[in-house]
Design a protein around this nucleic acid. Structure first.
Lengths: 174, 174
DNA sequence: TGAACTATATATAACCG
DNA sequence: TCGGTTATATATAGTTC
């Protein structure tokens, strides 16, 4: 969409990258809002500029909480399926541009990403299991035998809360 | 972008709305991926179809967790500022289309959304305060005087965890 | 810097099978 | 209800100011 056809690969010129980001960010935010209004759907768009400045665009109909909760209700299998579907749709789009885009590189890196995400999910799951294991000890009354122990338990509870705040809901997206 | 210029308002025909959603979803997902690759940035796009089927598109460079955490690190003030900035950018875009779009209606509903979000944030904050209040009682050793009480505490702890899982990170987006 | 300008590439509304 | 086609509206790359 411009004077020349652009290869879809990282722009190496820093200024050009930032200029392109600014223009395309505007475009995609407009698209997101139009889609939300036209089709009356919920949408969240979250992105970081090359200089790490974040931007959000939120479809206006329902609260972010509702959107996230709705997505979080899906089973992990469902979520993985959605992710793959998104990828398939993209493959299809890029197939028409075989001569312009290195599809194999693109698909390869996409697959890599899925693997990364899977690994990350495994990692987080392990962390959660650890948390559950530690939680289970709360039911063991014998271990609660002095005030210091209680203090430790409270500290670790706060740790759990922080860990969960930081990581557990992220799992919902995987 | 089509045979006729489209007013940006809810499509009343259900079939047309779904058809448009499918096409535009494809378009915006492609845009999101292109932006992510071209500008080497992190991006999350999450949306629900008119029939509530969710779709996600995730910029490939870093994990979702990193993106969410980075955003969550912003202060509430920063977040509110970003939201307003997004809105301003949109106002600007739509201003050029004054004759096509009912700007006042659009801006009105956007403002409403911000108010909704603010209210929701207040609600969630209250919920969190309640959780913190309840947590504080864990430090009061005198209240732990029998096994039943411990069982109740464990149950309520599980409740907290669920509540936090469901709501606390959502706050990061507000 | 960033805003404005074009020429061109893309997206997509209506249509068709 | 889909997937393809076509005419047209939009987005945007390169450029200029």
């Amino acid at each position: 969409m411009g004077r020349v056809k652009l290869k879809i690969k990282k722009l190496e010129n820093t200024n050009g990258r930032q200029a392109t980001y600014a223009k395309r960010k505007h475009g995609i935010m407009k698209k997101a809002n139009e889609l939300s209004i036209l089709c009356d759907v919920e949408i969240i768009l979250l992105m970081f500029s090359p200089t790490n400045k974040p931007s959000v665009c939120i479809g206006k109909r329902s609260s972010i909480e509702e959107i996230i909760e709705k997505f979080a209700q899906l089973t992990p299998q469902e979520r993985a399926k959605r992710k793959l579907e998104s990828l398939e749709a993209l493959k299809k789009t890029f197939k028409k541009l075989d001569h312009d885009v290195n599809i194999h590189e693109f698909l390869g890196s996409s697959t890599q990403t899925i693997e990364d995400l899977t690994n990350q999910a495994r990692l987080l799951q392990a962390r959660l299991s650890e948390i559950h294991r530690r939680l289970s000890c709360w039911t063991d009354v014998d271990k609660i035998n002095n005030v210091e122990h209680l203090g430790q338990m409270e500290d670790s509870l706060k740790d759990y809360l922080n860990q969960i705040r930081a990581h557990k809901v992220c799992l919902s997206f995987l």
